[in-house]
């Protein structure tokens, strides 16, 4: 589903002493099938933004369009449930939402709420546990007996079982160890491609944004600061430094090489091995002129 924000603003507790404007004048478009990363500091409005994607919040100004559904301040969306089924959200530390007696029941909870029949739920359960790599014999166990990493996977499976078309991920790897982080991100990327999803990833990791996203939106103080292809956005050193964001490490390093050696070296999304090759040629090549 296409996503579009037009001049969206959201203010918490308006007209009280606690009034707080979380996002304002926010406009962007994401076409169906895109993997988009949303990057910005804590407090830049990322989590307010994503809560608009499945109607948990309605803009106080402007309009949000997800596929055929429209959210605006003046009217309530009648098909809210429909929207929530089609847009799955994996919140930060999703294992905190587990509550059922067994893993299987917890995975079934979402689809059952949306009226999916038992046979279909069963079929989906087997599919999703495979995707998140949870062995079948855990299905009848209590989710609270599992390890932290397994609980995270079960919670994700519960969202995937809704078979959403848009998948919203709010820092899905927070707190996991390096291998866990990579496994989970690779899994989301595979699903994104196989199921032709529209994926919205909120992340603090510039590396993940660079590695997985087709499009990056950078938020600062509640509004869009920059957007574009990762390889283009992340080389704008001065602009990013201005909002205290780091460059991905590989790009930082390339800049340092340029500075120290005076070489021209551009980041085009090359693999580490290609970069090493280029560096080698530059070091030896420069030598030939001496």
């Amino acid at each position: 589903m296409d996503i579009s924000f037009e001049n969206v603003a959201y203010t918490y507790q308006p007209k009280t002493p606690f009034e707080h404007r979380a996002i304002h004048d926010l406009s962007f478009q994401v076409s169906s099938g895109t993997f988009v990363a949303i990057v910005g500091h804590t407090g830049s409005g990322k989590s307010t933004l994503i809560q608009h994607l499945n109607g948990l919040l309605r803009p106080t100004q402007g309009q949000v369009t997800i596929g055929d559904y429209q959210l605006s301040s003046d009217k309530k969306l009648k098909e809210m449930k429909e929207l929530r089924r089609r847009v799955g959200v994996v919140f930060q530390y999703p294992e905190h939402q587990l509550f059922e007696e067994t893993v299987a029941k917890d995975i079934a909870f979402g689809p059952a709420n949306f009226g999916v029949d038992q046979a279909e739920i069963k079929k989906r359960t087997y599919e999703v546990i495979q995707a998140v790599q949870i062995p079948e014999d855990l299905l009848e166990r209590s989710p609270f007996d599992l390890s932290g990493g397994q609980m995270r996977r079960v919670a994700i499976a519960g969202v995937l079982a809704m078979e959403p078309e848009v998948l919203v991920l709010d820092e899905p790897t927070a707190g996991l160890d390096p291998r866990g982080q990579k496994d989970i991100m690779d899994m989301f990327y595979r699903l994104h491609q196989e199921k032709n999803l529209t994926t919205v990833l909120v992340t603090h990791s510039m590396e993940d944004a660079l590695h997985y996203a087709d499009h990056v939106i950078i938020l600062d103080h509640g509004t869009k600061y920059m957007e574009g292809k990762p390889a283009e956005v992340f080389v704008k050193k001065e602009e990013l430094n201005k909002v205290q964001l780091d460059l991905p490490e590989v790009i930082q390093f390339i800049f340092k090489v340029e500075e120290k050696f005076g070489f021209r070296l551009t980041y085009r999304g090359q693999e580490l091995s290609e970069l090493a090759q280029e560096l080698k040629e530059l070091i030896r090549g420069a030598d030939n002129h001496e």
Partner: peptide
């Protein structure tokens, strides 16, 4: 299940290509 930082990965790649790196680097 652990992951080495960027610099040591790149240093590795360079070593594989025959670039001489004597001291395992810890920083850029």
């Amino acid at each position: 299940g652990l992951d080495t930082p960027f610099v040591s990965k790149l240093a590795d790649q360079l070593t594989n290509l025959g670039v001489e790196i004597n001291n395992q680097p810890l920083s850029h």
